[in-house]
Design a protein around this nucleic acid. Structure first.
Lengths: 253, 253
DNA sequence: TTGTGTGAACTTGTTCACAGCA
DNA sequence: TGCTGTGAACAAGTTCACACAA
């Protein structure tokens, strides 16, 4: 991995495990739902159930953030929402650009979970001149020519690539050159980026292939021992992504 | 985890690690590209670079499948493609239904990476009667009422949920009741399923939040030690998903 | 008494480094 | 000689189980 390992000023211990970071958004979602129902307090058991993890893991995760619970009682919902949001950096505004406004890009632009979590779609960018000016999700699409200007003017540091695979690396290079340092890649390619730039990839086809693997195994087991004992349900979140060089991408066309 | 741990008849040792399974699709993609360029052989080093992992990991991964390489030479591309495909269960045909044909569902339906990897979109299903009959990606959308019939007639075992969060659990229940045993969930909800059913989740908002976390840290580091050494690039694939109960979902509406 | 917080045991995954085959 | 295959060391992540605070 190799991380700059510089100490941070006013924050917690340091070094929240990646696996924990990947689960914080889960907890946050569950907590937000509780908050909307005006539930004041949750136990690790309840929250874990709502988030789909087991309670020991959840408590361990929270212990990395600090001691935000009350023994014998549980966690204060509002307080936890705030602490997790802060830890994830969601108390600030993150302008995001989406490049490639096909079906997927449009789906992303329409996704409601953004605004509520500190993300703001600063611009939609597409290479097709015919798209320029057309509003998607209420935001006019801009042409790729404007990319650099948009990034710089809005101080965008997070870019989403939803272009076809062939265009992804080029778009990536331009985003990075313009100042973007975090990229969420939906194109089925391995992007190469300079040091200091984070890339996360979402790949539909990979997820399906993993399902197929397990599905196949189920069939095999059934054949071997008819009417076998079904294993416990596994519900996985596509979310780890080891912090070294992984790769492939996802989905659209 | 708790897995049925039944021995399989004609296959390899058993127990390919989950982490390895999650990477096989990566290797497969890289190999397919090489195959298309008629490259006969690759070394672990080259293939690893193309897949975005390091070569030791790749060799270890392959060692779980068997000894498919030749010392001093490398791996036969075609042969490996076949072995991995077989291991992932992609040598058979997997009919898939997509439920919820909004922007995201349409994006999925249009995704080209399916057919080439053993997946076949057997049906598109939407609750909106106005959608019924409308072709998306050349496939006519069918109404939710047909769901059970479609699953049974086509022997569908994999379902993709791309509905709004509110409808996801209900759709999930119907899919499972009709015989689906693997679900790819794009809705931002924790699905509960009976034992024996696999759920994988893709959640855009989670990925963005993870990026925001690292982005925030970068900013902090810069502040602490101006012009600090940039850490090595990290490129992560959203793909692990621990096999116990994880949760949240992704994207549309 | 209840439920958090956490050391310690354990499991899974990654990296090293090198023996051994082509 | 070159590159695979893999045991052994290491690191990360998970679960256990219980002390202790409210």
């Amino acid at each position: 991995m190799a991380t700059g390992r510089t100490h941070r000023p006013a924050t917690r211990s340091r070094g929240i495990p990646e696996a924990t970071v990947a689960r914080l958004p889960l907890y946050l979602r569950a907590l937000t739902a509780l908050s909307e129902r005006s539930v004041p307090t949750v136990s690790s058991e309840e929250l874990a159930a709502a988030a789909g993890v087991n309670s020991a893991k959840l408590r361990k995760d929270f212990s990395y953030l600090g001691s935000y619970g009350t023994r014998g009682v549980g966690y204060d919902v509002e307080y936890l929402v705030y602490q997790i949001s802060r830890e994830l950096g969601l108390t600030q505004d993150w302008p995001v650009v989406i490049v490639g406004i096909g079906n997927l890009g449009a789906a992303l632009a329409n996704y409601g979970g953004f605004a509520s979590r500190g993300f703001r779609v600063a611009a939609l960018i597409d290479a097709d001149p015919a798209m320029a000016g057309k509003p998607v999700a209420g935001i006019p699409v801009q042409h790729t020519d404007e990319l650099e200007k948009i990034i710089q003017d809005d101080g965008v540091s997070i870019g989403v690539i939803a272009t076809p695979a062939g265009a992804a690396q080029q778009v990536c290079d331009r985003l990075v050159a313009a100042g973007v340092t975090s990229i969420l890649n939906f194109a089925p390619t391995v992007l190469s980026v300079p040091d200091g730039v984070d890339v996360r990839k979402v790949d539909l086809s990979i997820e399906l292939q993993i399902l197929a693997f397990h599905e196949q195994r189920k069939a095999g087991e059934e054949a071997a021992a008819t009417a076998a004992v079904p294993r416990t349900a596994r519900q996985d979140v596509a979310t780890d992504q080891g912090p070294d060089g992984d790769v492939p991408a996802v989905m659209p066309t």
